[in-house]
């Protein structure tokens, strides 16, 4: 007992205090609050809120939009994460080399990251606009009539995935580039002396050394695939007929367009559980297989 209250441990607790307060005030308390909201029927105006039990969670089961957004979000995640990470690695390898105009290319790769998502969406809205948009104008040059990218449920989600990759890849590239610069050139020379080909060197030396970075990026990518919905406000509003709707946007609409705080809270709890389970898997499962220096 006296261990906890020893002078030194109090000193330690005091050092932790600012971080702990911030974490509790802005992370754990809102999380608990969200859970409590989700089991209450939020009173609107004159009605007071009352205990609702699992009603909001039962509604999840019968809400067709909820099912759609879950599937869409899975497709969105699977579509954006591997490609944007692969692309980021490729771009990083390119601009890690020495060639004329390297900083210009680096800047070009990084530019989409600097732009806010809303601005990006506004740009891409005019890319995707049928007939007068950039993509359709290019296709028309070759005599092809482009589809109605954002107006067709079959193409809208892919169109948004492409845009998200364009936006994300440059950001991830920076991390790879930083990691590549820390890898000692001696390794490359040694591999050369041993007669290892470029591909072999990449597969056996470079890529394993980049694994910690890949883990970090993949966690970020997973979070982003659930977090990035700004573009939906501009591009599709989740339409047509929910074909591009994502979980977070559905939460937003439930909370602020339908004013159903209780159900929105239940949806938020689901989102938290999804993200938490991803983080657990990534940290405890993949972490063991990664070589840290």
């Amino acid at each position: 007992m006296h261990q906890i209250f020893s002078r030194q441990s109090i000193y330690g607790w005091l050092l932790l205090l600012p971080a702990a307060i911030l974490l509790f005030a802005f992370t754990y308390y809102p999380m608990a609050g969200t859970f409590f909201d989700s089991i209450f029927n939020e009173g609107s105006g004159s009605l007071s809120s009352r205990y609702n039990g699992p009603l909001n969670y039962q509604m999840l089961m019968i809400d067709p939009v909820f099912k759609t957004v879950l599937i869409n979000n899975a497709i969105f995640a699977l579509g954006t994460i591997p490609v944007s990470i692969g692309l980021a690695l490729m771009m990083a390898l390119i601009v890690d080399q020495h060639f004329l105009g390297r900083s210009l290319v680096r800047m070009a790769f990084f530019t989409p990251t600097v732009l806010p998502m809303i601005a990006v969406a506004n740009i891409w809205l005019f890319f995707y606009t049928p007939d007068i948009g950039l993509i359709d104008s290019l296709l028309a040059f070759f005599g092809i009539e482009g589809p109605n990218w954002l107006g067709d449920p079959d193409t809208v989600l892919s169109a948004i995935i492409v845009m998200a990759i364009w936006k994300e890849a440059g950001f991830f590239m920076i991390f790879y580039l930083a990691a590549l610069q820390t890898i000692s050139p001696e390794l490359k020379e040694a591999a050369k002396l041993e007669g290892a080909g470029k591909l072999y060197y990449f597969r056996r030396v470079l890529f394993p050394l980049l694994m910690p970075t890949t883990l970090f990026i993949s966690i970020n990518a997973v979070i982003n695939s659930f977090k990035l919905v700004d573009h939906l406000f501009i591009l599709t509003k989740g339409g047509p007929d929910n074909a591009s709707n994502l979980l977070l946007y559905h939460i937003y609409e439930t909370a602020f367009s339908y004013f159903d705080q209780g159900y929105a809270a239940a949806l938020t709890v689901v989102l938290l559980l999804i993200l938490a389970s991803f983080a657990i898997v990534q940290f405890f499962f993949f972490d063991r297989r990664i070589h840290y220096r």
Partner: peptide, 19 residues
Amino acid sequence: MPEGTIEWGTLRQNFLEGK
């Protein structure tokens, strides 16, 4: 009229460009 949905935000542009 084009099939599928038609975007509210860019329609004016479509009209102004004679599409």
